[in-house]
Amino acid sequence: MTLMSYRQALHDTLRSEMLRDENVFLIGEEIGVFEGSYKITAGLLEEFGEKRVRDTPIAEEGFTGAAIGAAMLGLRPVVEIMTINFSLLAIDQIVNHAAKIYGMFGGQAKVPMVIRTPGGGGQQLGATHSQNIELYYAFVPGLKVVAPSTPADAKALLIAAIRDDDPVIFLENLALYNTKGEVPNHDTPGVIGQAAVTREGHHLTLIGYSRMAHVAKKIADQLADHEGLDIEVIDLRSLRPLDRETIVESVKKTHAAVILEDDWLTYGIGAEVAASISDGAFDYLDAPVRRVAMAEVPMPYSKSLESAALPSENDVIQAIYQTLDAIGHRRIKTGPHD
């Protein structure tokens, strides 16, 4: 194990996968000379040269589609789309092509590629640069969508994504790049399609992915320490496929769920999770399933409004208590906090 940042884990994994397999190459805007908008690819152009680290023109549709075509011939491109907002310019190639090619041609061509892209608000980047639109991809059969929240999962899932023979959308998050965690030294691929129970508990199930899985764990730990609450935390890790089994098994045990998401509420990822709980654990629920999501506005620039729009830790704690109150769960008094 080595303690490192999420950014470092991504960088090191890209590098080791490029060393392992000559077919792996990087393609995207400003990833070479500029070393990446978020410096994930720093130093790689120098080490691997222009063939393996390709700076592209500003042409998301063109270079994403080119990566798909290269993958059809057996290369393993790892595309960087600077932020998920710009992936909208490539959505035709991702949804109408990458996702379709394997099935639409009767399994004759595989598309072994990865699209890495960060989402995330809270950086005062305004309406066009703060969106969390992973749902657009998670909706589409033929794609796989992963959203790791820890450096260790970032490594394991990036390895899995690169070695997988299907197009994988690899969701990163601006707020996670500097977070740190222990990362295994071995190169074992993670499993796409599996959630993780990152904290066991029985009072309530708190569910999140990407940044919100991080937030969920932090809040659950705090509430355990200060309030004696025993909350189970699920990190979805994969949005497609969605590990409904793990979610439902947890809710059968805790009888309540709060879902955290950085995307918009209506039709969001949380809606799908809530529907899954309703289908799989209806008889076990003691309270309505709650969702804590972003306010439904184009993200404002001003700090005061941006903060109001983003789900805060306090919003999450409120939702947890309201849910526990609905069940009639008595808060365990542990001292000065009450």
């Binding site: 033929g142 023979d165 399609g193 496929p241 969605l242």
Partner: peptide
């Protein structure tokens, strides 16, 4: 559905 089978 997929070229590489995955759980779920």
């Amino acid at each position: 559905n997929y070229a590489t089978a995955v759980p779920n």
